[in-house]
């Protein structure tokens, strides 16, 4: 296990993402600036359409900013090979997609030279026993699929986990299990987690820092407990009051 320093790992400098949909131009991410530190958990909250997922996609380089710059370990994100950087900033989708076949074959798809021991180790890390390796993915529950998706990402030894509402399709108990799992994996592997959620309650449970996005803009950020109890902006107050009701 590497030491978990509080150094800057990721920086967004005035990042915008402009798209054209049905002939109309729109900024899904607008002038976003923020500095992320290694080993911390960051919750990105905000109403639907605030640009939370769009921002995560920029970090995984599934899209690129139209303006501004993203820096990973002080180097522009675009200077890295996309196929390599995506392993370091691993994205877990809201609806996990597992490739047809077994859990084991999904793990091997990620890392063709991975051993059985590695597969078992990573499955155990996400609370699944070794017998899951031989299970067909069609037999898994949504929660189990999400765990496999996380285990699959861990095989790539990422530095940052990008989680796009990973518990959106889960019941409250399963959601909290996944949350605890993420927090324990962060400690175990010295990971940084950036998690999108539309649920401030979830952000409260995750702790760390919280970023509030509205209409593509980062309108507020700070310690999670402070931001959720004492938002500074009027938009923030309205949103938090409505969501925590």
């Amino acid at each position: 296990m590497s030491s978990c320093q509080d150094s800057v790992i990721l920086e967004a400098r005035n990042v915008s993402r402009q798209i054209v949909a049905n002939g109309n131009s729109k900024k899904t991410v607008d002038s976003f600036s923020y500095t992320f530190h290694k080993g911390d958990v960051y919750n990105i909250i905000g109403p639907s359409g605030a640009g939370k997922t769009s921002f995560l996609r920029l970090l995984n380089r599934l899209d690129d900013p139209s303006e501004g710059e993203l820096l990973y370990q002080n180097k522009p994100l675009v200077s890295y090979q996309p196929t390599e950087i995506r392993k370091n900033l691993s994205l877990i989708f809201q609806e996990p997609y597992l490739f047809p076949g077994t859990v084991g074959s999904n793990m091997e798809y990620c890392k063709s030279d991975c051993t059985e021991d590695e597969i078992e180790f990573h499955l155990e890390q996400v609370g699944l026993n070794s017998q899951f390796a031989g299970k067909d993915v069609s037999e898994l529950s949504v929660g189990e699929k999400q765990r496999v998706a996380i285990a699959r990402s861990l095989l790539l030894k990422p530095e940052i986990l990008l989680l796009d509402e990973p518990t959106a399709a889960l019941d409250p108990t399963s959601s909290q299990t996944i949350e605890l799992l993420i927090l324990s994996l962060m400690k175990e592997f010295c990971l940084t987690a950036i998690m999108v959620t539309h649920n401030p309650e979830q952000a409260k449970r995750m702790g760390g820092k919280t970023l509030l996005m509205v209409s593509g803009r980062l309108i507020e950020n700070g310690d999670t407990s402070e931001l959720l109890t004492n938002p500074k902006t009027e938009q923030g107050q309205k949103y938090i009051r409505r969501e925590l009701k």
Binding site: L62, K87, Y97, C110, R152
Partner: peptide, 13 residues
């Protein structure tokens, strides 16, 4: 799309 982007996000070309 999800299948394609999942593969890309896992570092596939």
């Amino acid at each position: 799309r999800l299948e394609v982007e999942t593969a890309l996000s896992l570092g596939k070309s």
